[in-house]
Design a protein around this nucleic acid. Sequence first.
DNA 1: TAGATTAAATGTTGATAATACACTTAAATT
DNA 2: AATTTAAGTGTATTATCAACATTTAATCTA
Lengths: 229, 229
Amino acid sequence: MGRIEYKQYDRFLLAVDCIIFGFDGSGLKALLVKRGLEPEAGKWSLMGGFAQQNESIDDAAARILLNLTGLDKIYMEQLYCFGDLDRDPGGRVVSIAYFALIKIDASDNDKLEEHQAKWIDLKKLPPLVFDHKRMIKLAKERLQQKVSNHPVGFELLPNKFTLQQLQALYEAIFERSFDKRNFTRKILSLGILQRLDEKEKASSKKGAFYYVFDKKKYKQLESEGIQMI
Amino acid sequence: MGRIEYKQYDRFLLAVDCIIFGFDGSGLKALLVKRGLEPEAGKWSLMGGFAQQNESIDDAAARILLNLTGLDKIYMEQLYCFGDLDRDPGGRVVSIAYFALIKIDASDNDKLEEHQAKWIDLKKLPPLVFDHKRMIKLAKERLQQKVSNHPVGFELLPNKFTLQQLQALYEAIFERSFDKRNFTRKILSLGILQRLDEKEKASSKKGAFYYVFDKKKYKQLESEGIQMI
DNA sequence: TAGATTAAATGTTGATAATACACTTAAATT
DNA sequence: AATTTAAGTGTATTATCAACATTTAATCTA
């Protein structure tokens, strides 16, 4: 056997682009960078890079995310492969997009500055290079679908969070409001949240209980499928 | 500008593999071929091929499907990009999988024979090359998701079909049975089926009415989203 | 320390959708 | 005319979703 076949076929540059989502309590944000490479250097862009022969595509995505944020073991999912002929004016590049969910204040600020990266509200996106706006749009739709059936929203929140923070997150993701009573009832009925004896006191006198996500309980439900919203 | 950048990065072979679904009235089938290329030549495989520089990835998928079946303008959707290091023992090949839905008796039989292609029931899959079984598994899950929210199941049926054929299709896709009364009521309530004045008489004395899918009515509903099942 | 303030926490009702379940009907065959 | 075959159809129950406002805990202040 061995790697001797396929000599005569065309070869492609493979880019990996990352849609990195974060949540700051109000709006849903994407982490964007100033592109460092010609063409279009200096313009707003998703964080990306070229895949290498010695790594899987998943590993390339993880490498690129680590490179920007200093984070590993992050929730990441392949989104789509963009393969139009003219999507990159710099050459024929097929791009595989991934989306990641991170806690917005967890990343390494020095690294962010290195890449001139900024968290930008999805509702206020600047012009972006290539087809990156389309990628973000698709990623947001996929995120909506995902959080409907899987409790991945927790990846965007601090380890302990209040029900109002959770609701604000869902409202940001779906760009609609939810009834507080119905939302609370539904989320708690899943049995995957654990209430702590500790309260968040900054934003009210009464204080709101913190909750944590109970991974054990979720694992039990995961196989059956779960209806979050 | 121009295509002068990116010289120093690694380049990849890009394969496109097609999961082609069909339905023969009982089981859900996939169209498999005997692989023509080393390594693993002669083994069962999805239909695939290498992408070319002068075509988009979508076009490559359409070309490969046309090449096998003689069909174009087929329902096709990108499934996933498989990029593990060792997925193909013949070399580093990244594969972009597409799934297609076709009417099982519409394809060109000469072409099928050329590729030694066969429709094989998903429940009786033979060993397949590389990661093709995983691809089919993922495609089936995606198909289930898809037909839940979009009336693409019609792509797998003849232009006119009975309610029982439609139900049998859904039962094959979901590997479960549905209550005939509930199923009929739900499907008809969507208002996207038109009953013809013609009956299918082969399988019963009373005969079952033929229906056609009403694309106009569906277009109206499409934006709102539609709950098929 | 009593009253005011702030946001958190909580229940009920009506509407809609999902499920479970079995008999009647149309048309051909004998 | 009686039989056969699968098609076609209705209802009652349960579960889920959606709409809606008051009470409570804790702090602040006069």
